[in-house]
């Protein structure tokens, strides 16, 4: 009796499936509980990986609920690569689709933020420009094009995402108030840090990433967000080492 890896794999992920024939103990009796060691290793190690990957979700739901969710998630979405540090890419969509959790609408966004923090942690190293790199006359600043650090991440949300994250990660953080908050992640050295993004900042960054100058991006952004604070956005990026190059294309004279 040979046991294919397809059979083994199916029985591994389905706790109600029978132990495959052809697996034995030392006295040639069916392996029974011995097979459960593998079942258990897979479920426990992946559940543990989910706890580590999503600490704020775990805190919001409680560890036992997280165990239950992880148990369903890992069977639906086993890791697709051996890079366990990136496990859980599908978790935000999975959370959004859970009927029982629809009363906590912001969970998926919190999961996206936790994924973005991990992506930032493992992103390529880069050198931020000097803090005074943009200490230029205004007419030059508007012509500048910027490049951002690979570790910089933007997470948009219709929920007060930054406040929710902070309330569940820091002691004595204020209670979240209603309202939409985007989050900017910068990584000055090796530790990614989330910041509250100024209103419109996410749009402005997207315009700059699309190749627009600071000035063009500002015009696009303030058309929609008249209150957009360019100075505050640039300060956050500069302090976080998230701007890696400043190029100014001067007009030919």
């Amino acid at each position: 009796m040979s046991v294919s890896q397809t059979t083994f794999h199916e029985a591994l992920l389905d706790p109600s499936a029978a132990v495959p024939d052809g697996l034995l103990d030392a006295e040639d009796r069916p392996a029974g509980r011995r097979f459960s060691v593998y079942r258990n290793n897979v479920a426990v190690s992946l559940t543990e990986a989910m706890h580590q990957a999503f600490p704020v979700i775990t805190r919001l739901l409680g560890p036992q609920n997280m165990d239950g969710l992880a148990g369903i998630f890992l069977r639906k979405h086993p890791p697709s690569s051996p890079l366990m540090m990136f496990y859980g890419e599908e978790f935000p969509a999975f959370l959004a689709g859970m009927e029982q959790l629809s009363h906590i609408g912001y969970l998926a966004d919190v999961a996206r933020l936790e994924l973005a923090l991990r992506r930032s942690y493992h992103a390529a190293d880069s050198q931020g420009v000097a803090p005074d790199a943009l200490a230029l006359p205004p007419e030059e600043i508007v012509l500048a094009k910027l490049e951002f650090a690979p570790s910089m991440r933007v997470v948009r949300s219709d929920w007060p995402l930054f406040s929710i994250w902070r309330f569940n990660s820091e002691e004595d953080a204020p209670k979240p108030a209603p309202g939409a908050e985007d989050v900017l992640i910068t990584r000055p050295d090796y530790d990614p840090a989330p910041h509250l993004m100024p209103k419109g900042g996410a749009d402005w960054i997207a315009h700059v990433q699309a190749g627009h100058t600071i000035g063009e991006a500002f015009e696009h952004t303030s058309a929609e967000f008249p209150e957009f604070d360019l100075g505050a956005t640039l300060a956050l990026l500069l302090q976080g080492g998230a701007i890696t190059s400043v190029t100014i294309e001067r007009l030919a004279t």
Partner: peptide, 9 residues
């Protein structure tokens, strides 16, 4: 790994 599922064991 089986069928592109990595089982972490």
């Amino acid at each position: 790994t089986h069928d592109s599922h990595f089982l972490n064991d």
